[in-house]
Amino acid sequence: WLICDHRAQRRYGLGWSKPFPFPTTKYVRAGYLFKAPTLIELAHKCGIDAQQLEVTVSAFNLGAEQGHDPLLQRGESLYNRAQGDALHGPNPSLGSLHKGPFYAVKLVPGSLGTFAGLNTDAYARALDEHGTPIPGLFAVGNDMNSIMNGHYPSGGITLGPGMTFGYIAARVLAGQAVDGKPAGQPDPF
């Protein structure tokens, strides 16, 4: 669950529910956005342990007011801070939750990108467990193992490599030269 207070929802929005001046009513009615005057009532609506939610929010608030998140280290990376509110301190990406109503959206796994796609060579050919190209199988974009080595520096990070390796794969499939070498030649690396 992703939880915020009224001030945060109205200023930044929460999930698909947009910030002020857009109303939240349609999201609450649809069962997407949960709203309650207290954390205990919010927990009941969400089907989570109310006592544990209060304990968790209390601990989070103490850290947020000091500018850190001791449990999950949110707000510590430059990426986190750059995505926060530059006018909010001490940490632009952390804010305590004090005054209701409180809001929640359920977080579920999704498919945005990957860091662990198929291993490929310099020609975008998919490799087997021995590092040998699999005949006829290519991978680019989100299907290709990330060139960022398991890091996610920004949204869209697979777009440039996807276009580049898509171009390379197309040239190889068309039997055209890549980097001055005829297609199908051994991997130069």
Rank of each mutant, 00 (worst) to 15 (best):
S77D: 02
G95T: 13
S77Q: 03
G89D: 03
G110W: 02
S77W: 00
P109M: 12
A116M: 06
H98C: 04
A122G: 12
S96K: 08
Y79H: 04
Y103Q: 04
G84F: 02
Q73C: 08
Q73P: 01
L97W: 03
K99N: 11
T120D: 00
L112T: 11
N119C: 09
S93P: 01
L97F: 05
D85H: 10
P109R: 15
P109S: 14
S111I: 14
F115T: 15
A86V: 10
H88E: 12
L87C: 09
A122D: 10
G113P: 03
N119H: 11
K99I: 09
A86R: 05
S111P: 05
P109D: 14
Y123D: 01
G110A: 10
Y123F: 08
N80G: 03
S77H: 02
K106V: 14
P92F: 02
T120S: 01
A86G: 07
D121E: 03
V108M: 06
S111G: 15
R81K: 15
P109G: 11
Y79F: 08
F102G: 00
P101D: 12
Y103I: 06
V108S: 08
N119F: 07
L118F: 10
G110V: 11
T114P: 00
T120I: 06
Q73L: 11
H98V: 07
G110H: 07
F115N: 10
L78V: 15
N119W: 08
L72A: 04
L78I: 15
F115W: 01
A116P: 01
P90F: 11
G89R: 07
D85L: 09
P101E: 12
V108P: 00
P109I: 13
N80I: 00
G89A: 12
L87I: 08
P92N: 07
G100W: 00
A116I: 09
A104G: 13
A86E: 07
F115C: 12
S96W: 04
Y103H: 10
A86W: 02
P92K: 04
G75A: 00
G113S: 15
Y123E: 00
T120A: 01
R81M: 13
S111W: 15
G110M: 07
G84V: 02
N91A: 06
S96Y: 05
P90K: 13
L87D: 12
S93H: 06
V105G: 05
